[in-house]
């Protein structure tokens, strides 16, 4: 079953077409990679399906239901959660409280477990190893990404969108985050990962889509896509592509 099905999603800002007719089919239980050079429109595409900026044209089906242009909080309740390239924590709350906000407001069905306990469980799941009463404004970028992820998981998503979760991590941390992403998938959560780091893409993605100037230029398994001349051209330039 398709968890996400977008048909020719287009997003224009004035005269600029940031996303041009992108159709993406994500199977349930898949890790779907979305790659492309900086400014290709990856984040804009993500934003237009989660309801931050509704798409100018096109249709979005989520979990078999049309959700085009619904607002972010409704998408969250329907089961679509996301993390940000630059994390958006609540700075004056502690780590635990940040995750609790997700537990309390993120999902419409009542959790039998108390919010406190559930938040602790999620923090354990993402391997957050600092004291959980640390205020969020004292965390570094990597720790912030990790509570951003925990907060997204707290909303009980069916589909999780990760916007450059792995950027800025050390090679050791990359392994941890890759196994964490796979662990999340094994819980039955489908994932769309916007990513730059090829190692992560090869390591976790089942299917990859490449977009450039807002247009899809390739789609397939990681190996297929990364050997596609169009993709090499987009990333490395024309001459390098000829040499390769």
């Amino acid at each position: 079953m398709l968890i996400l099905d977008t048909k020719k999603v287009t997003k224009r800002f004035g005269g600029l077409t940031a996303v041009n007719q992108v159709s993406m089919q994500v199977e349930e239980g898949q890790v779907y990679g979305l790659i492309g050079p900086n400014g290709a429109g990856k984040s804009t595409f993500i934003n237009s399906i989660v309801g931050r900026f509704p798409p100018t044209e096109g249709v979005v089906y989520f979990n078999g239901e049309e959700t085009t242009g619904l607002s972010a909080e409704i998408m969250c309740h329907k089961g679509m959660a996301r993390t940000f390239q630059i994390p958006r924590p609540f700075p004056q709350l502690t780590v635990l409280e940040n995750v609790k906000v997700g537990v309390i407001f993120g999902s419409v069905d009542k959790d039998p477990m108390p919010a406190d306990e559930r938040a602790r469980e999620i923090l354990k799941f993402v391997d957050f190893n600092l004291p959980i009463d640390t205020p969020a404004d004292r965390l570094n970028a990597v720790q912030l990404k990790s509570i951003d992820l925990a907060r997204a998981l707290a909303c009980k998503p069916k589909l999780l969108l990760l916007d450059e979760l792995a950027s800025g991590l050390t090679p050791g941390e990359l392994d941890t985050i890759m196994s964490l992403i796979l662990k999340i998938r094994d819980q039955g959560i489908s994932i769309i990962a916007v990513e730059h780091i090829m190692r992560v893409i090869k390591g976790i993605c089942d299917t990859v889509m490449v977009i450039e100037y807002g247009t899809t230029i390739a789609e397939g398994t990681p190996d297929e896509v990364l050997n596609n001349p169009e993709v090499i051209k987009a990333y490395l330039g024309e001459e390098e592509a000829e040499n390769a």
């Binding site: 989660v50 931050r52 607002s71 972010a72 909080e73 969250c76 309740h77 959660a81 996301r82 940000f84 958006r88 924590p89 609540f90 700075p91 004056q92 709350l93 906000v101 997700g102 309390i104 407001f105 993120g106 999902s107 419409v108 907060r151 997204a152 707290a154 909303c155």
Partner: peptide, 25 residues
Amino acid sequence: TRVGRAIRAVSQDETGAQLVGINLN
């Protein structure tokens, strides 16, 4: 209260609050 807590969440980060399912409007 639940709604009061949502108000405080919005005051700290609008986008973050909306993404965890708080109705901004």
